[in-house]
């Protein structure tokens, strides 16, 4: 099992993702986007950063890079794909997951710890948690506000594809606990398959016990184990 962490020009959490996965005993390597994925990828991470400098829209250019065709094919064949932060933006821009991530309600970049409520525990990404658990994972983004049309959101909720919602430390999903104005406090969603997920918070920053205040993010990365 080797996880491919796709590095675009402007990715900057690629090394962090590799380090966090390796800490968990999961082999991982960075893959330069132009070099393409291995023939049979075992798992894929779209890491955080500012691919293509966030020019046009965050994630919009990377979503159209040739490697994303390979990512889409792998996703369709059941390979686990996790998009984090800029990777989440790329995931939604490329249609892997629904909705879009846009400018924070504060109109500023925000780097801070947040709490998430685990909405489903029966997916590979959340098997380490119980439904309703509150976990602490940091965010670091300027464009993380989840936006989706009302009908599509109803469908998303009906299909039970909301993976995490922003909440306070007691687990209550409130406006005050919503750091960026996301619709319905949504922090992370599933693709059409449960093996595809994106989220704005950074699980790789909540994995290494020597620096992180919380290691609650490790559970998500263990999906690749």
């Amino acid at each position: 099992m080797t996880v491919s962490v796709v590095q675009f020009g402007g990715s900057n959490c690629d090394r962090d993702a590799v380090r966090a996965l390796r800490h968990l005993g999961i082999d991982a390597e960075r893959v330069w986007h132009e070099d393409g994925l291995p023939a049979e990828p075992d798992g894929i991470v779209l890491p955080g950063g500012f691919s293509y400098g966030d020019y046009l829209r965050a994630g919009a250019m990377a979503a159209r890079a040739p490697v994303m065709e390979e990512v889409r094919e792998a996703a369709e064949s059941g390979v686990p794909v996790l998009g984090v932060c800029n990777g989440a933006q790329i995931g939604s821009e490329s249609g892997l997951t629904p909705g879009a991530f846009t400018t924070n309600a504060s109109a500023r970049f925000q780097c801070e710890p947040v709490h998430l409520r685990v909405e489903r525990a029966d997916t590979p990404w959340t098997a380490a948690y119980d439904e309703g658990d509150t976990i602490e994972v940091p965010i670091a983004h300027g464009e993380g506000r989840f936006e989706i049309e009302a009908d599509a959101h109803d469908e998303l909720v009906a299909e039970n594809r909301v993976l995490f919602r922003y909440c306070d430390e007691t687990g209550a999903v409130t406006d005050a606990a919503n750091p960026n104005g996301s619709t319905d406090n949504v922090a992370g969603v599933l693709g059409e398959r449960e093996t595809v997920a994106v989220l704005m918070p950074h699980p790789e920053r909540a994995t290494l016990p020597d620096v992180a205040t919380s290691t609650d993010g490790a559970g998500m990365l263990e999906a690749f184990a």
């Binding site: 790789e204 290494l208 620096v211 992180a212």
Partner: peptide, 14 residues
Amino acid sequence: VYRQYDHEVGTRTA
């Protein structure tokens, strides 16, 4: 101020 800075990228900031 520091909330606007990504102070954690690189996963070294203890």
